Simulated assay, not measured.
Amino acid sequence: MLFLSNVVLLIETPEFRMSQSRTFSLTLLAMIAFAGNSLLCRQALKQTGIDAASFTSVRILSGALVLWLITQWRGGRHFSAGSWPSALALFVYAAGFSYAYLTLSAATGALLLFGAVQSTMIGHGLWRGERFHARQSAGLVLAFAGLGVLLLPGLSAPPLFGSLLMLAAGVAWGVYCLRGKGAIEPTSVTAGNFLRAVPMALLVSALTHPQQALPPAGIWYGVCSGALASGLGYAVWYMALRGLKATSAATVQLSVPPLAALGAVVFLGEAVTFRLLCASVAILGGIALVIVKNAAPVPATATTSSPRHCKN
């Protein structure tokens, strides 16, 4: 915990925030943390025998604790910030994420999650009357075509039920991001939402696995996912955002699925199929066409519905 306090103090200093190289370092660290969530969850469920509900509980509880400590250290609000509807969206995301990784590979899950989050926010922008240019429309079609390619039946297709769970998790996270858009104290709001989500996760664990002994290794992976990849990862990301433009913040998130895929190959021994590669290029490339602004200023675009502080 002393290490955590030192990290928070360091990234709070004006000298640290002013450096572009340090902004890059913080951004890279945050993206690695977010990709690490997929690796930690998949490894825990595949190798340790922990159930998805318990992993979700450990992740949310440890994330809430770390975020609460960070807000306490900084003298901010904690439980008073946030809301119950946002906490519910957070819980649905975390639970769907865990249950989906019972059957999905880390790379496939990260790609589906990312695509669903961005599609939800882009769809919200369209529903509010935003208009696309021809390039953005083509990008949206390309992204959905890539999703279709990934989910088409075949030997290399991911399990349908797990895919639907991850898509639902992505929609929930997109809703959570939209609800938190423009938050003045994003870390405090996130801490409050995590704290509110704890009883939801514990209730599901109690109802589904009331007497199951939790393996220590599974608990450890859950703590790393919640405390480091989620709690500390969000805090670092919010600091990095102070040195990033909105478009840059949205675009850099394209790195998360490739980082998760690379980590899955190196650390989990997962194979990346040709279908996944093609779908990744189509989905990530299509979303990039949508969220990257034109050189010239234009009226409302889908990028306005991509909150700077949103990520899994």
Rank of each mutant, 00 (worst) to 15 (best):
S306E: 08
M121C: 05
A264R: 03
L90R: 01
I60Q: 01
G63M: 07
A183H: 13
H133W: 07
E12A: 09
L202C: 09
F161C: 04
G182L: 02
L284T: 02
L214P: 00
Q211R: 08
A260W: 01
V223C: 02
L126V: 12
G218H: 02
L160V: 11
P307E: 01
I122L: 10
S19Q: 06
A201H: 12
Y238S: 00
G218E: 11
A260I: 10
A107G: 12
R128V: 04
Q118A: 05
Y238D: 12
I70T: 15
A145G: 05
R196Q: 07
L113D: 04
R59C: 08
A217D: 08
R179T: 04
W173F: 15
P85F: 01
F161M: 13
F91R: 00
Q212P: 00
K245W: 12
A288F: 12
F144L: 13
S98W: 03
L147M: 14
T71V: 04
T13Q: 14
S38R: 10
E130C: 00
A35M: 09
V265H: 15
G233H: 04
G63R: 10
L102H: 09
S54E: 08
G180S: 06
D51Y: 02
Y93K: 04
A107D: 07
S280V: 00
V141M: 10
R128H: 13
A271I: 11
G96E: 06
C224D: 02
R275Q: 13
C310P: 06
A201F: 14
T27Q: 08
G129Q: 10
S163T: 11
T247M: 14
W237V: 01
V7W: 09
E15H: 09
V117A: 03
V117G: 03
L65Y: 01
L61E: 04
A169R: 00
L112D: 13
S38Y: 15
E130K: 08
S25T: 15
L69N: 06
L26Y: 02
G170F: 12
F55G: 00
A157T: 10
G123L: 12
A100L: 10
R128T: 00
F132N: 06
G192Q: 09
L111Q: 11
T251I: 11
R131A: 10
L284H: 04
H133M: 02
A81I: 01
A52V: 01
L2C: 02
Q43P: 02
Y93H: 13
S98V: 03
A295R: 12
W84N: 03
